[in-house]
Design a protein around this nucleic acid. Structure first.
Length: 523
RNA sequence: GCCCCUAUCGUCUAGAGGCCUAGGACAUGGCCCUCUCAAGGCCAAGACAGGGGUUCGAAUCCCCUUAGGGGUACCA
């Protein structure tokens, strides 16, 4: 039997990284075993079924490279592809109703006419007696034929008749054996009472089981929050006469020891906001994007993380390859993935470690590719137009090459490229104060300018030699000259190698900038 | 309340009775390299939640306690 896994997000308008990890495990397991990975949209909460809510999810998967074999089409227009279409639960209600009617006829389900008030009272009474409330509906013991007649006449919530005095046992692929007594399981609602449109809509647990059976899902890998309703679902599988998939409940992803709820997530740091603004974002734009937090894929994408780094990090969170591997490229992960090495305890999102992995992956990206991938960020920042002319591309390539490992995120390219791409650098007042207003700085700059005027050819090596010559002649350490020259030509105290910087600027521009910097120094 | 799950350095984890004086990684601290910033090299500090058992022997098995978490809907 081929392995078939699935991921079933609710359309909320953004893609949560906890969900991505669950999806990744499903995807990995399917790919490892030559099976299929199915994407299903759980929109039984009908009103929210809008393309705009689904799009960020599909878009995110696309960016991450997690491809699905069956499911909604990428345009998020509401269409599906695959042998079991549609893959939107909102479009599958007739199937759920049909399955429920079968259960009604076979006596596995019954309508419940219990008044809400009576149910509440019973619940409160049980609570008072320190017992768990296990709901059993009004028509539980009515003959099936009678119930079917009643239901046709007067539809009500349709409940599953949970067998009494039994144990539901299953072997969870990560938790191990789980046993639950059916006497502690309430009769769950399968179908709601008719809505305003007269339709009886399926509840999540029922819809999911019907779909799992219909899609032929063999392995249900999902978040731990679903562990508790697994016994109920197994009972539904049994009533349906469907084969029961293997379950694997993976622990949640926490942040600072807590579930990642929006209010506990940190706001964007000043550094992150600065990076976005360097990429051309306005304060209002940043504020308007309330999905920009560490729990969403959008955050990583906008700041310029590599999908490969996020995937590695998320895959390694709660799963390990062995006792020492941290850097695990996707192909290695695919070839070695198994449900048996998933941890049982929740894991905390560690931004430091993710960032470290990001830098490791970034080191491996060839310069030409870095250039290509930086283009959207540079465009947004207005540093380049719609097309990248050859001269700028050459300059940009040189910048990215010279910046090397300093570029951790694609948004970092801006900090290195801007001073060199722009007509005049912005002078950081602190840098000017410290390096240009230092005693003797102007003389040193003039001395250096005088020397390089005659240097031919002008490149990193000759610029370096010229600086050392000047330093030696003046009897100072090279560093004492490097600093003022750096600030004079880039406006900043930090950057990659000074001589690479000067080479990229060229002799004429270097001299022009030094001249300009001299005007900033009071006589 | 009731049902269920979980528990190793700050964090992610290795560990399935003796290979454990508990290994690796991120983060942290120190030193080296160095024109700044990165990168790199070396070193350091840092954990089996607590208590009972079982056993010749327990991080590993059992029980209790404690602490977290999930569920308890005509939500998903």
């Amino acid at each position: 039997m081929t392995v078939r896994t699935r991921f079933a997000p609710s359309p909320t308008g953004y893609l949560h990284i906890g969900g991505v990890r669950t999806a990744l495990f499903n995807w990995l397991y399917a790919r490892r075993n030559g099976g299929q990975f199915v994407l299903r949209i759980d929109d039984t909460d009908a009103q929210r079924n809008r393309a705009e809510a689904v799009e960020p999810i599909l878009d995110g998967f696309d960016w991450l490279g997690l491809d699905w074999d069956e499911g909604p089409t990428k345009d998020a227009g509401g269409e599906s592809f695959g042998p079991h279409a549609p893959y939107y639960q909102g479009q599958r209600n007739d199937k759920y109703v049909a399955a429920a009617m079968k259960l009604l006829e076979t006596g596995h389900a019954y309508p419940d006419y219990t008044a809400a008030a009576d149910q509440d009272a019973a619940r409160k009474a049980a609570d008072k007696a320190k017992k768990s409330y296990v709901h059993r509906g009004s028509n539980r013991d009515t003959p099936p034929a009678e119930n079917a007649r009643l239901y046709a006449e007067k539809p009500a919530p349709l409940l599953l008749k949970v067998p009494e005095g039994r144990k539901v046992v299953f072997d969870d692929a990560v938790r191990g054996r789980v046993e639950v007594n059916t006497d502690t399981i309430r009769d769950p609602a399968l179908l709601r009472a008719p809505g305003p449109d007269g339709v009886c809509r399926a509840l999540y647990s029922f819809a999911t089981v019907v779909d799992e059976a219909d899609f032929g899902i063999t392995h249900v890998v999902r978040a731990e929050e679903h562990l508790a309703n697994t016994p109920v679902q197994i009972l539904i599988f049994e009533a349906l006469g469907a084969s029961i998939p293997t379950f694997a409940h993976i622990p949640l992803v926490y942040y600072n020891g807590k579930k990642m709820s929006k209010r506990d997530l940190p706001p964007l740091t000043a550094d992150e906001v600065a990076k976005l603004k360097a990429c051309g974002w306005t304060d209002d734009e940043v504020k308007a994007r309330d999905d920009l937090n560490i729990a969403t894929v959008a955050y990583y994408r906008e700041l310029g993380y590599l999908p490969a780094a996020l995937i590695n990090y998320l895959g390694r969170l709660g799963w390990s390859l062995d006792d020492s591997s941290e850097f695990i490229p996707l192909d290695v992960m695919v070839n070695n993935f198994g449900l048996d090495r998933i941890t049982k305890a929740p894991g905390n999102l560690d931004m430091n470690k993710l960032y470290w992995l990001q830098s490791e992956y970034m080191k491996l990206v060839p310069t030409a590719e870095k250039v290509e991938r930086s283009i959207p960020y540079l465009k947004r920042a207005g540093l380049i137009g719609d097309t990248l002319d050859d001269a700028t591309r050459t300059k940009l390539t040189a910048v990215i090459d010279a910046a090397g490992d300093r570029i951790k995120l694609f948004s970092d390219v801006l900090a290195f490229a801007r001073p060199l791409l722009v007509a005049n650098p912005e002078y950081d007042p602190k840098a000017v104060e410290k390096r240009l207003h230092a005693p003797g700085a102007a003389d040193l700059l003039r001395a250096y300018a005088d020397v390089i005027r005659g240097v031919e050819p002008f490149d990193a090596v000759t610029a370096d030699k010229a600086l050392h010559d000047v330093a030696a002649a003046k009897g100072i350490k090279p560093g004492d000259l490097v600093h003022p020259v750096r600030v004079a030509t880039t406006g900043s105290q930090v950057g990659f190698g000074l001589f690479e910087t000067l080479a990229i600027l060229g002799k004429a521009e270097t001299l022009r900038r030094i001249d300009h910097a001299l005007t900033l120094i009071p006589v």
